[in-house]
Structures are given as structure tokens and as C-alpha cells.
Computed example of a mutant assay.
Amino acid sequence: MEKIVKSDQQWQELLSNEEFQVCRQKGTERAFSGEYDGEKAEGVYTCRCCGLALFRSDTKYDSGSGWPSFYQAADGEVVAVNRDVSHGMVREEVVCARCDAHLGHVFPDGPAPTGLRYCINSLSLKLDKDKVG
């Protein structure tokens, strides 16, 4: 997969201030405030920055965390995981494999079959309801 690299200025021209803060500056939206937390529609969740298909609606579940949660990525190579030691915690940051947008974090407390909980910011996603699977 070819990487997409842009300057901060180029990303700022494409994203809202809130989207830029989350996707490019590793921010987070407030719990239960995101557009997709309670979303039930079918479709494919894509990267807000580059459009790469990241998660499918059939892997989304209500974790009660306040952020959209998925138990697996759409494909094993569409997300990357980096160690995050910010805020006095050790977590696993999830980023888009194509453009390095910050998506959220992954935790080992999800449901079967993976046991993973990809806890993702709505601001880093776009739901494409025209794509299913």
C-alpha cells in the first residue's frame, strides 16, 4: 500500500479543526459525543483523511465505552498499532496504515472471536452506507 504523506497545512485545509486535532494531533473526542457511537447502519467505516476502508459495520458492537467499538479491522493490513505512553498510561494506539491518521486505541477486552476492542474516534471515520462487507 502506498503511503499518503501531507504537511500539517495540507491536512488543515482538508479537515475541520476538530478532525485535525484528533486525526493529526492524536487527540480524542469526549466519550458519548461522537457521531458514530450509537450508529446501527450497515456499511464500511473509512478513514476520514484518506478514505481507506478500515472497519465493517458487522464487526461494530456497543462496548459501553462511549466511542465506536469494533472487534476487528476490515483487513489485517489497513491499521497499524503503535505503543502509546502518553498521559501516564501504556496503551496501543491505532493508526491508518496508509496516512498515519490517529484513530484511537485497541484493548484486549473485546468480544469473541478476537477478544479485541478497537475503540475509535468518530471524528477519524466516515461511514459509507453504500458499501457493505
Rank of each mutant, 00 (worst) to 15 (best):
K131G: 00
Q25Y: 00
E18W: 07
Y36G: 01
R24D: 02
P108V: 07
A101N: 05
L15R: 04
E13S: 14
A112F: 00
P111W: 12
K26I: 02
S33E: 13
S124W: 04
L125Y: 12
I120R: 14
G133D: 15
G104S: 08
A73L: 10
L54M: 11
C49T: 00
V81E: 14
N82T: 02
I120M: 14
G104P: 11
Y118W: 13
G88T: 10
L123K: 07
F20L: 00
S65H: 04
E29F: 10
C23R: 02
G104M: 07
T28A: 01
Y36K: 08
S7N: 10
Y45F: 15
G66K: 06
C96F: 08
S65F: 08
D100Y: 00
V90E: 14
S122V: 05
F32K: 06
D37I: 00
D100Q: 09
G34S: 04
S124V: 11
E19F: 01
Q12P: 12
S33W: 10
Q21D: 13
G27C: 09
L52Q: 15
S69I: 08
G133C: 02
V85F: 05
F32N: 09
F55H: 02
L127N: 10
K6P: 02
G133Y: 09
L123V: 12
C99W: 11
V85D: 14
S63D: 08
E77P: 01
K129P: 05
R83Y: 00
K3T: 00
I120W: 11
V106S: 03
E77Y: 04
S86W: 08
W11I: 06
Q25I: 03
A31E: 14
V79E: 01
S7H: 05
L103T: 07
A53W: 07
N82P: 00
S33V: 04
G88P: 09
L14V: 01
C50P: 06
V81T: 08
E39Q: 13
T59P: 08
S33A: 15
L125E: 13
D109C: 04
Q9M: 02
Q25L: 13
E77A: 01
Y61E: 01
L123I: 09
Q21E: 14
E92V: 01
G66L: 07
G34F: 00
M89A: 08
L123Q: 12
L116E: 13
P68N: 05
L14Y: 06
L116Y: 12
R98V: 04
S57H: 04
Y45L: 13
H87M: 11
P111R: 11
E2D: 09
Y36N: 10
E35A: 06
D58F: 09
E77G: 06
N82A: 00
K131N: 03
R98S: 04
S124Q: 08
A80K: 15
D109F: 03
G110A: 05
E77N: 14
L127A: 11
P113R: 13
E19T: 05
E39L: 01
H105Q: 10
K131P: 07
A31Y: 01
W67C: 03
C23V: 09
D109L: 04
S65R: 02
C119H: 12
T59M: 03
F70A: 06
T28N: 11
A73P: 15
W67M: 06
E92D: 14
C49S: 10
A97D: 03
R91P: 09
D37K: 02
